[in-house]
């Protein structure tokens, strides 16, 4: 009987040293304790997953693009100002589309999106000195020169949607309404840089700033 216990103990030690402890790093795919071939379950269902692979479509991807010349329900983009930033004459439109109300909440949303998607290059204040400048993105312009300050809103919207030269499009990351929120915040940044002492009307704020 002693031998039996010795052998058992030996097997235990062998198993632990073979399988290791919890939480060790490994690179092989995780072990499936109940493999599909032995225990058929619903673990792998034959449905396409986002960004998944597909053996059915020739390009091997489960994600499909809309068929050409079709429009999904609710996706009709018939407002040129809202979706293209252009007016009825096809020029870049000035002002914000009618479907959009610019209020503090909208600006706050624009600020958040700007900080995520634009600030790495254009910086928090929009002077073009974002962190990527240190690593070699040299060409990022400042929003605070005359050309960009007088640029129509629609053209900024178009830059976000389609990119410009070395700046790539951000249409995949920002929905149209979000792009307008960012445009509104860019306008706010530009206005802030042009601020004059006379713009400060709040008495308490004037005192902190040391204004008469």
């Amino acid at each position: 009987m002693r031998n039996v216990y010795l052998i058992t103990a030996f097997v235990c030690v062998a198993v632990v040293s073979l399988l290791g402890l919890r939480g060790t790093r490994f690179t092989a795919p995780p072990l499936d304790v109940f493999p599909e071939w032995a225990f058929p379950s619903m673990e792998f269902q034959p449905r396409p997953k986002p960004q998944g692979a597909s053996r059915f479509f020739a390009d091997g991807q489960a994600d499909r693009r809309p068929v050409q010349h079709t429009v999904a329900r609710g996706m009709l983009r018939d407002d040129d100002h809202l979706f293209l930033g252009r007016d009825s004459a096809g020029e870049f439109a000035r002002g914000f589309p009618a479907a959009i109300t610019v209020d503090p909440e909208f600006l706050q949303h624009g600020r958040e999106r700007y900080a995520i998607y634009c600030a790495p290059c254009h910086s928090e204040v929009g002077d073009g000195n974002g962190i990527t400048k240190r690593y070699g993105m040299g060409a990022t312009p400042s929003y605070h020169d005359e050309r960009l300050r007088t640029m129509p809103e629609g053209e900024i919207y178009n830059t976000i949607t389609n990119g410009k030269n070395t700046m790539m499009p951000y249409a995949d990351k920002l929905a149209p309404a979000e792009r307008w929120a960012v445009v509104a915040y860019v306008r706010a940044l530009q206005r802030a840089q042009m601020g004059k002492p006379a713009d400060v009307t709040d008495a308490a704020a004037r005192q902190t700033l040391g204004l008469p």
Binding site: Y5, R22, G23, R25, F26, T27
Partner: peptide
Amino acid sequence: VLAGIATAGVTYYMTPKYTRVGYAPV
């Protein structure tokens, strides 16, 4: 004793805490 060891082994080695945690593919 064997049943005890087997139960301990299964709970330790056959749950996601062992099978998944630490997975860092190349």
